[in-house]
Amino acid sequence: MVDIGRISRALRRRARRVVVWFWVRKLGVLSRASHEPLTHPGVGPVVSLTSYGTRIQTTHLIIESIGRGRLKPSRLILWLDEEEALANLPKSLQRQRKRGLEVLRTENYGPHKKYFPYVSSLSEHSDPLVTADDDVLYPTDWLEVLERRAQSNPQDVTAYRARRVSFDESGLAPYEAWPFSSDGSPSVLNFATGHSGVHYPPSMLDRLRELGTDFLNKCPRADDIWLHWTALRTGRRVQLVHEQSSEFDTLAGTQAGGLRHLNITDGENDRQIRATYSAEDLRDLAAAHLASGTDGQR
């Protein structure tokens, strides 16, 4: 018997790949030809991202997708730690620097490069920070919708995608078992994942600066853990932009060498969580879990 549902899903995936292919080609043309500013100083939040290795060659496409948004960032910063890359910046990024992109040097803090160099660069923060990934194609309403949602609870963290911290009979469940959250209300149980973009309030940035580089001792390969722990310890909740976790298309060919396999499949996240969260932290999360009466799934 013909599986109509399976065929339909395959056709939708193929159609989506075609749409993404055209969008990538358009972004490439725009990055070569456009003189339009990528930023609007004093208006939107700061957007910060990092890249490394061969992915630097395609980062201009991601930056172009951010800069083409209806709400432009007040600053758009790309942090690089590789001296050779900084000395031989691709022409695509050189052109974007003339349009407002900042390409700045940082120490190699691993995935923490996307936020820590920025938070440590200022003695006091007045603007929120949005972190972005270097392999995600952001839609034109990405930053506008994220900023609007953040204003509903400006002292909390706002994310497009989050897992739900979960417990089982033995205590904290393995990270891989945490489902993606479908609870749009602010909660300490929502664990923001950076893939689709996360919005952080200025006061939390000040705290991250004060904490310094202790993340290197506890969770050097998992910035999401450190950022959630900091939010928890400063009394901040995480809210989703929508009622369901959502994510955007990724740029084909950029997934090799990522941390997903090490952190999730090999259980490295669980080791880093144990090193970061204290017994008191886990009690607070367990109490929130019991009080919620749900894992945030509807």
Rank of each mutant, 00 (worst) to 15 (best):
S245E: 12
I264E: 15
P117R: 03
P73C: 01
L11Y: 06
A252L: 13
V130Y: 07
R97A: 01
L240R: 06
E147D: 15
S8Q: 13
V145E: 14
G293N: 10
Q57E: 15
D134L: 05
R13H: 13
L282G: 06
V130D: 02
A150W: 00
A159Y: 02
G69K: 03
R163Q: 07
R13Q: 15
D249T: 10
A256P: 03
G44N: 00
C219R: 00
M1E: 09
L240F: 03
Y52S: 06
G100Q: 08
S120F: 06
T213S: 11
L146G: 06
V136W: 09
E102H: 02
S65C: 09
N88M: 07
I4Y: 09
H228G: 05
D281H: 02
K26M: 15
V20W: 05
R68G: 04
V130T: 07
H125S: 03
S31P: 09
D134C: 03
T250I: 12
L93M: 04
V188W: 10
N108G: 07
S123C: 01
S182L: 13
L27R: 05
R6Q: 14
K98A: 13
L93E: 01
T213I: 10
P174C: 03
V136R: 04
N217V: 04
R105K: 15
E268N: 08
G212C: 00
E147G: 06
Y118N: 09
D156L: 01
W79I: 14
L93G: 03
T276H: 09
K98M: 05
T59C: 12
R298I: 12
Q94P: 07
Y118T: 08
S187P: 13
F191V: 08
R14H: 14
